[in-house]
Design a protein around this nucleic acid. Structure first.
Length: 723
DNA sequence: CTCTACGAATTTTTT
DNA sequence: ATTCGTAGAG
């Protein structure tokens, strides 16, 4: 066996982690330090050197993309297929467990997965049924609450009924929601995790079976795990030395959705026989970029402590551009990308990273003007598009008549004369008699409660679904999908030019048929589940980002969150202003502020060669022009790494005709000016020093005067210090 | 049932 | 500025 292939490409720290034995490992992997490589090599090491069976390998990630990448790289190194290993997302693995043991998990065999849109819809409908004003109590809030509870491992029965009226109401809704999901046979994302936890927790036999099976458990992005995920892991690994977790406390940016950095500390308590390995050598960025990253993150408290270093040279300084407004900012960025491309680089190597999606707009406009192709990440994903969801809803209803969420979605899409009145009546019956919407509709027709016209329309709908199922019973999956799209009326509906972007929508529907065909092809029969049901779960669990147009050479636009895990030679960190980044909502809360700072750290460490940071003095916010000021994060950066640029028209031209008097200068230069100091200038009046840059004859300072900011060369300027 | 007009909200995202 | 959802008119 050739172990050099596994070991040789690793540095000392990586090797220590990969080859460790008989203990749990906590790998603190800084940005760009080869964390995926360590995971991949570790797994291969276990198989090839320690003769661990691939069946015994469990590896969990947060995204399908990460899981795919890991599997791919393992297969490459192993030179065989890795299908015996369980490599997947927390949700994917939980789903797999629940499918295998649906009976023990007390779930219907063909349960369906509810994505968060579906969940919100369902909650909204529930609130309406309970006569709760959705204006006063937005479904979003309930959704948030329920998921928060589930992520903490709490069911409604675990919550104590308090006297607080509001808490009482939340609890009641939670309870009703559980009943509704149970009755309709659907499972939301948080439920997948909670159910999988309960399954192992409650069933000793099953638990032991999986404990025995998974002798090696690997976790990626450990800092992003929430409570239930952590508890689930510990169920699988009780006091054993087989957990290999990789994470970076400095890159924990998902606290707001329940991730607990504390899990890293819990891990250390829980698994005393563990070793910590820090991966601090960075293979991605220049020295200057890393110094900036270290400089910013050290302002956070309670870190595990890590300091990135590189063998690379410092490289270029970080360019800071103080734009006049958001348009100027965008122009600057596009101008710079132009120069980058003109000197022979690719557009796709350049990324524009912002704090919130709304900021993409200005950049898109300028990029369009410059005729430069770009791609904005984070829009609607394939399976989230309305036309796709509608088509899927038909399929889901065919698979399961009790799927209220789906029925609700398509009962009048395309319109077929079933209006609000009729729908209300159905809901009313469903609620009062604890029927599914489907059964309630039947009830209304059988009991002849509805007006003739409505009854006819409703009956036609019910018949349509029955007929679709009958007619496609013998079909293959993709044929089924095609038939349903065509005969549900959706195709005709989207063919009308009234529907906006109808061509795109039809294109997408055709793509769904392709996706179904591809799914049948790739999918190995999953334990007794119908192919349709399996495909529907796949659609819920896979957002469908995978084969997004690997189009031509595009500038990349995305939020800082989306950028995590990626790298680009040229990075623009834009909108670095107080109130934007850090965001307004985070400024007064220390924990939130530190998370923003970690986000900033993530942003900086995306850059490989060159980083630009920009901010605007004025920004159009909610339609109003607002004065802005540079972010505190900019001030926290080691100033010697920065070179600040101002819009051309605002830079006061340094006079370069005469040689400055070095001697005279030197006497004064050392301690004369400080940042934040008030000074007075003959012509411009008094102002505050914002930035000091350069030394000796080249020293210049940025002063913010009443009406404008100016760069002044201290060697030539008469300034009086004001106290 | 469909269309328009008005008011309210507006960090970040995966599964 | 823009999007999104709902109320009221057509």
């Amino acid at each position: 066996m050739d172990i050099t292939k596994i070991i040789a490409p690793l540095n000392d720290a990586q090797r220590t982690a990969v080859t460790a034995s008989e203990k749990s490992m906590l790998v603190l992997a800084g940005a760009g330090s080869g964390k995926t490589r360590v995971l991949v090599h570790r797994i291969v090491w276990q198989i090839q050197v320690n003769a661990v069976s691939p069946q015994s390998i469990l590896a969990v990630t947060f995204t399908n993309k990460a899981a795919r990448e890991m599997r791919g790289r393992i297969e490459m190194l192993l030179e065989t297929n890795a299908s015996a290993m369980w490599i997947g997302t927390f949700h994917g693995i939980a789903h797999r467990l629940l499918r295998r043991h649906s009976e023990q998990a007390r779930l219907p065999k063909d349960f369906q997965v509810l994505d968060s849109n579906d969940q919100q819809r369902l909650i909204k409908r529930l609130l309406e049924d309970l006569q709760i004003d959705t204006k006063e109590l937005p479904p979003k809030e309930i959704q948030w609450f329920i998921n928060e509870q589930k992520d903490a491992g709490l069911r409604s029965k675990h919550l104590v009924d308090s006297d607080d009226k509001n808490a009482k109401r939340f609890l009641r809704i939670y309870r009703e929601y559980e009943i509704l999901c149970e009755r309709t046979g659907v499972v939301d994302f948080a439920e997948l995790l909670l159910r999988a936890y309960e399954l192992l927790h409650d069933d000793e036999h099953l638990r032991e079976q999986y404990q025995r099976r998974f002798s090696q458990i690997h976790v990626d992005e450990f800092q992003d795990t929430n409570k239930i995920q952590y508890d689930w892991l510990t169920l699988l690994s009780p006091n054993r030395d087989n957990l290999f977790v990789v994470g970076d406390d400095d890159q924990a940016i998902y606290g707001w959705r329940g991730a607990k950095i504390e899990n890293i500390y819990n891990f250390q308590k829980h698994y005393p026989n563990h070793e910590v390995v820090k991966l601090e050598q960075n293979y991605r960025s220049t020295g200057a970029i890393l110094k900036a990253a270290n400089g910013i993150i050290q302002n956070n408290q309670g870190r595990m402590g890590k300091s990135l270093w590189t063998e690379m040279a410092d490289g270029e300084k970080i360019t800071v551009y103080a734009a006049h407004d958001e348009k100027d900012e965008a122009k600057y960025v596009v101008e710079r990308i132009k120069l980058w491309v003109e000197s022979g680089n690719k557009r796709e190597q350049a990324a524009i990273l912002y704090r919130s999606n709304a900021q993409s707009r200005q950049f898109e406009e300028q990029l369009m003007l410059a005729k430069m192709p770009y791609k904005v990440y984070g829009g609607l994903r394939f399976f989230d598009r309305a036309e796709i969801k509608n088509a899927l809803a038909y399929l889901r209803l065919i698979a399961n008549r009790n799927d209220d969420a789906s029925l609700d979605r398509i009962i009048n899409t395309p319109t077929r004369g079933i209006g609000l009145k009729t729908l209300d009546a159905i809901r009313e019956v469903a609620h009062s008699r604890q029927f599914s919407l489907w059964d309630a509709a039947h009830f209304l027709i059988d009991e002849k409660i509805l007006p003739n016209r409505a009854a006819t329309a409703l009956f036609a709908f019910l018949e349509l679904i029955e007929k679709l199922e009958r007619d496609t019973a013998a079909f293959e999956l993709s044929e089924k999908v095609q038939f349903v799209i065509e005969h549900s009326g959706l195709m005709t509906f989207y063919s009308q030019d009234k529907v906006e972007k109808s061509a795109d929508k039809i294109e997408n529907l055709k793509e769904l048929i392709n996706a179904a065909a591809a799914f049948s092809f790739e999918n190995v029969e999953e334990e007794g589940l119908s192919e349709l049901a399996a495909f529907l779960s796949h659609a819920a669990l896979e957002s469908g980002e995978s084969q997004a147009d690997e189009f031509d050479d595009c500038v990349q636009l995305m939020t800082l969150h989306t950028a995590k895990g990626l790298e680009f030679p040229l990075v623009f960190l834009v909108g670095v202003e107080e109130g934007i980044f850090p965001s307004q909502q985070s400024i007064y809360d220390k924990a939130k502020l530190e998370e923003e700072r970690r986000l900033c750290y993530v942003g900086i460490t995306r850059a490989m060669q060159k980083l630009h940071i920009t901010y605007a003095d004025n920004r159009l916010l909610y339609g109003k022009s607002t004065a802005a000021s540079k972010s505190r994060f900019l001030k926290e950066l080691p100033q010697e790494l920065l070179e600040e640029v101002r819009p051309k028209r605002e830079v006061s031209r340094p006079v370069t005709t005469k040689t400055p008097n070095f001697l005279a200068f030197k006497v004064e230069s050392d301690s004369r000016y400080k940042m934040g100091q008030r000074v007075h200038h003959e012509t411009f009046g008094s102002g505050v020093i914002q930035t000091i840059e350069g030394e000796g004859a080249k020293e210049r300072i940025l002063i913010k005067f009443n009406r404008e900011s100016r760069w002044l060369m201290t060697a030539y300027t008469e300034l009086t210090v004001v106290n």
